[in-house]
Amino acid sequence: MKLLTSGILLLTFSLIVNGYNILGIFPHPGKSHFDVFEPLMKELTKRGHQVTVISHFPQKRPLPRYEDVSLRNTAPIRMDVFDMNGFKLSRFEQYYDVINLMNVGQSSCENGLSSQPLKDFLSSDRKFDLIITEFFSNECFLGFVYRFKAPFIGISSCLLFNWHNDLIGNPSNPSYIPNNFLPLSDKLTFLERVENTILGIVQNTFVRIFMDNLNSKVALEVFRNDLPPLRNIAINASLVLVNSHFSLNLPRPLVPAVIEVGGLHIGEAKKLPQVIIIETNNKIFFV
């Protein structure tokens, strides 16, 4: 009995010491997205896990237990100071945002999966205990879940899109849950509910007919022909982490597999500097 107990304790401690081998897949070239995911991956290394991260933003300095598979220079990086006037879209123009997302996703898929670092990575005999991958508009990278046969967690840097809720069976009742692409509250008029419903149907149909097919086409060229439909892979997510919180985003029902982790990327508060420089209208003020 003592021998059995000692053996169990030894096995437990060995698992704790060795940690898990985790693959993070973040192929979207937006720095704001990666800023949400990077602290999570770094924290996993601090807790003893080995992480491999596919992204456009490799570490500038090597970190213990952190390995980069760089997609740098495979797509234009979306990191700049934006003119907010450019975001003032008309109601009609907002319906086409999903097309922009599809184009960005297709570009990420084609350029990323054809890059030499990913080709070398795919040809390796690596094994992973867990995969964490972004849910956005580049589901072609779900082929890695099939390739490495590991359980996976989805993560989103923003509110889940309508079609992602549909994928994982999360309630998205258009009578009181506004679509991300519309400037609506949860106090909807009858006409707003009609518009909310129609847009959701249009988006889900568009994603199924166009976005899913484009993602699948690219994925099939890289992974084996017996790759199952990407939608079938996505619905098997063990968990979905979402950068949202009911105190900022409207409260809504969530299935147990969807966990709000709003502020996951926010570190410890730092003291303000003694001098704050504010630049506005070409004038500099010292506070």
Rank of each mutant, 00 (worst) to 15 (best):
G24C: 05
L118Q: 07
I25M: 01
I209F: 10
L220G: 12
D80H: 08
N236L: 09
N111W: 02
G169N: 03
L241V: 04
K187P: 04
D83Q: 10
I233E: 00
N282D: 09
A269G: 08
R91H: 02
I8H: 08
L118F: 11
R224G: 13
K42Q: 06
F136L: 15
Q50L: 14
R193Y: 05
L227G: 12
V287I: 15
N204E: 07
V202K: 07
S123D: 10
S172G: 07
L4K: 13
Y66I: 01
S216A: 15
I209H: 11
F181P: 04
I233S: 13
F246V: 14
K187F: 03
Y95E: 08
T133V: 06
R126Y: 00
K127G: 11
S216R: 10
V104F: 06
R147P: 12
V207Y: 00
M102P: 12
T52W: 00
R91S: 07
F246I: 14
D83W: 03
N138T: 04
D166G: 02
F286Q: 13
H56C: 14
I22S: 06
L241H: 01
D125E: 11
R147T: 05
I131M: 14
L250P: 02
I153R: 00
M79G: 14
H28N: 09
S14Q: 12
I16T: 03
N243A: 10
K283F: 15
K46C: 06
H28M: 13
H56A: 08
V287Y: 09
L10W: 15
N173M: 06
N162Q: 15
E268F: 09
N204H: 03
D129Y: 10
I22Q: 07
L71E: 01
K31L: 08
N85V: 04
L188E: 05
N204M: 04
V194S: 11
